[in-house]
């Protein structure tokens, strides 16, 4: 039995620079994946809401397809099998990033769809009445408001995305989680490193979601 007093904090202190490198990769992956998947998700949402049948179908199939699969499976696909199809090297980071963007876009799509639906029809109509084209109406009238309304939910989903990036551990990409496991196994200090990793994730995600809540309150004033 390991008591708190037996904890070897020294192991963590020595490993900090290495863990920090991992954390930077986690944050970079989260940031890029969030931007990419919000963009793609918005496109998909517009497709689902478009009047063209084909677009509706593509959007619906995309969303239902990816929401039926475990993220882990998607990560494996992009890491092992996609390079075989494209016949070239795909950087582990890039393959993970592409996987995350395609997968998370399905979730962001649904958020953006309800965001767009929350904007009253009259606004779009007045846009058209002013002589704006569809693209202009969306870009200048509907989407900015939809983003604003959905900002807290988009941010919450991004926090979930940050947690999900820890799954790249299965393909050995050196994110925070992978780095923690590497050190844990190298120094046989599982307890210290895993508790530390949990603590770091908890503090970051807890305060991030707290900030989102505060933001939400401010917006509702």
């Amino acid at each position: 039995m390991i008591m708190l007093g037996d904890f070897d904090f020294g192991v963590i202190v020595t490993a900090l620079p290495y863990l920090w490198d991992g954390m930077q990769l986690s944050l970079l992956l989260t940031g890029l994946a969030a931007v990419g998947s919000i963009f793609l998700g918005t496109l998909l949402a517009l497709m689902r809401l478009s009047s063209i049948r084909l677009f509706q179908w593509i959007g619906a199939i995309w969303v239902n397809f990816f929401r039926s699969l475990p993220l882990l499976l998607v990560i494996f696909w992009f890491y092992f099998l996609v390079p075989l199809i494209v016949q070239g090297q795909v950087d582990a980071f890039e393959s993970a990033l592409i996987g995350f963007v395609l997968f998370e876009a399905a979730y962001f799509c649904e958020i953006m769809r309800s965001g767009i639906q929350s904007i009253s029809r009259g606004q779009a109509w007045s846009g058209y009445a002013l002589g704006l084209k569809y693209s202009q109406t969306m870009r200048y009238v509907v989407l900015p408001q939809a983003f604003r309304n959905m900002l807290p939910i988009l941010l919450t989903q991004t926090i979930i995305l940050f947690q999900d990036t820890s799954l790249v551990f299965v393909v050995g990409l050196a994110d925070f989680m992978t780095s923690a496991v590497t050190v844990a196994q190298r120094d046989s200090r599982l307890v210290e490193l895993y508790v530390f990793a949990a603590l770091v994730y908890f503090v970051m995600c807890y305060f991030a979601s707290l900030s989102v809540k505060i933001l939400q309150k401010k917006m509702h004033k």
Partner: peptide, 25 residues
């Protein structure tokens, strides 16, 4: 808050590797 803010894979490792070491032998 505790369970929501820790990635699932970390929780998996906590249950499997850490918990057995924290309880009586």
């Amino acid at each position: 808050e505790l369970f929501r803010n820790i990635p699932l894979i970390v929780q998996m490792f906590l249950w499997f590797y850490v918990v057995p070491e924290m309880v009586p032998d």
